[in-house]
Amino acid sequence: MKRALITGVTGQDGYYLSKLLHDKGYEVYGLVRGQNNPKIEFLERELPFVTILTGDLLDISSILRALDVARPDEFYNLGAISFVAYSWENAMLTSDVTGKGVLNALEAVRLYAGDDIGKVRFYQASSSEMFGKVQHVPQSESTLLWPRSPYGVAKVFGHYMTINYRESYGMHASSGILFNHESPMRGPEFVTRKISMAVANIARGRQETITLGNLDAKRDWGFAGDYVDAMWRMLQQDEADDYVVSTNETHSVEEFLDVAFGHVGIDDWRPKVLQDPRFMRPAEVDLLIGDASKAHEKLGWKPTVSFPELVRMMVDADLARIDAESA
Score class of each variant (00 low, 15 high):
75 F>A: 11
317 A>T: 13
39 K>P: 12
61 S>A: 15
326 S>G: 07
118 G>P: 05
227 Y>W: 06
88 W>G: 05
103 L>D: 11
81 I>S: 04
145 L>M: 10
43 L>R: 14
319 L>R: 06
154 A>E: 02
99 G>V: 00
115 D>L: 10
327 A>K: 15
155 K>V: 06
180 N>S: 12
273 V>S: 10
253 V>T: 14
65 R>C: 05
205 G>E: 13
165 Y>C: 06
93 L>Y: 12
5 L>P: 01
153 V>N: 03
292 A>E: 14
143 T>L: 02
18 S>H: 10
89 E>Y: 09
112 Y>M: 03
324 A>V: 02
169 Y>F: 11
63 I>S: 06
232 W>I: 08
35 Q>F: 04
261 F>Q: 02
307 F>A: 00
203 A>L: 05
135 Q>T: 14
247 T>A: 00
163 I>H: 03
185 M>R: 12
225 G>V: 05
2 K>S: 14
283 A>W: 08
42 F>G: 10
266 I>N: 13
320 A>T: 04
114 G>H: 01
93 L>G: 05
305 V>S: 09
71 R>E: 06
43 L>H: 06
168 S>M: 04
38 P>S: 02
88 W>V: 11
218 K>H: 07
31 L>P: 07
187 G>Q: 15
37 N>C: 12
242 D>C: 15
188 P>A: 04
185 M>L: 11
